[in-house]
């Protein structure tokens, strides 16, 4: 156990955990956008900045990846932090226009107006969650960043037929601003953003579509399971229905 203080509250944190985790467990709110427990911290959106005082010196750190240390004093809501947070959120809204997700967060951190020119440049806030979930969790490495500065964007490889993508939809699930569309029709699943169209596989028991062909093949390659299991949807499997 590591003893730390957050906003004056004494907290016992777990060895090796991040300040953000410790704060969340203690019920202290720190806004985040690019953080998700499913993937490694990325410290890119900078919403989770906090002040950490150690040996009489104060520094600004991202709580999502700053490990707790014995005796540190964390402040999550100083004037400086509030200013930085608000401006960062204003910048993001100026980029994307006011989306429901950002609007909600804006209310929470007290952004009253956006003082920058709203450019509606792109809906994506470049949090990198989709890229990371695809790399770290799915293991497909089907999307990545391209370009720098304002030109940065998330793209499928070479902008052509996307062979790595399994059309699993993990990216759409994790996207904090819900901009990755998934369409399913006539036995296909489509992710237009990644130039991906996949055939769906129907459960051999109940007949419902439950996965893409690529997903089945990936599980087959990884586990070597026989068709009798691979082509049965999780629901039917749970109820021990077999072909």
């Amino acid at each position: 156990m590591v003893k730390i203080t957050i906003d004056g509250k004494k907290i016992s944190a777990k060895e090796g955990e991040t300040v953000l985790k410790a704060a969340q467990r203690a019920g202290i709110f720190i806004p985040t956008l690019c953080n998700n427990d499913a993937v490694k911290p990325y410290s890119a959106c900078r919403m989770c900045l906090v002040e950490v005082a150690k040996n009489g010196r104060t520094k600004l750190v991202t709580s999502c990846d700053y490990p707790v240390e014995e005796g540190i004093e964390v402040n999550t809501n100083t004037e400086r932090i509030q200013r930085d947070r608000k401006v960062i959120l204003e910048l993001l809204i100026a980029r994307t226009g006011e989306t429901p997700e950002l609007k909600k967060l804006a209310e929470k951190v007290g952004v009253k107006e956006v003082r920058f020119k709203v450019r509606n440049f792109d809906d994506c806030i470049l949090c990198g969650l989709c890229v990371r979930v695809c790399d770290e969790v799915v293991g497909a490495h089907a999307i990545g960043f391209r370009g720098r500065g304002m030109e940065r964007e998330v793209v499928p490889p070479f902008d052509v037929e996307n062979e790595q993508c399994l059309a699993c939809g993990a990216c759409a699930e994790i996207c904090p601003v819900n901009i990755i569309d998934i369409f399913e029709h006539d036995g296909t699943r489509e992710l237009p953003k990644w130039h991906k169209k996949s055939r769906l596989v129907a459960c051999r028991v109940c007949g419902k579509y439950f996965a893409t062909e690529e997903e089945i093949e990936m599980i087959r390659a990884k586990t070597g399971l026989p068709d009798e299991i691979l082509y049965v949807c999780p629901d039917c499997r749970e109820h021990n229905f077999t072909i």
Partner: peptide, 18 residues
Amino acid sequence: LSKESCGKCTPCREGLRQ
């Protein structure tokens, strides 16, 4: 600098642009 920013983090990417 706004062109050389890697674009990873919000303040540098969006802030320099503004």
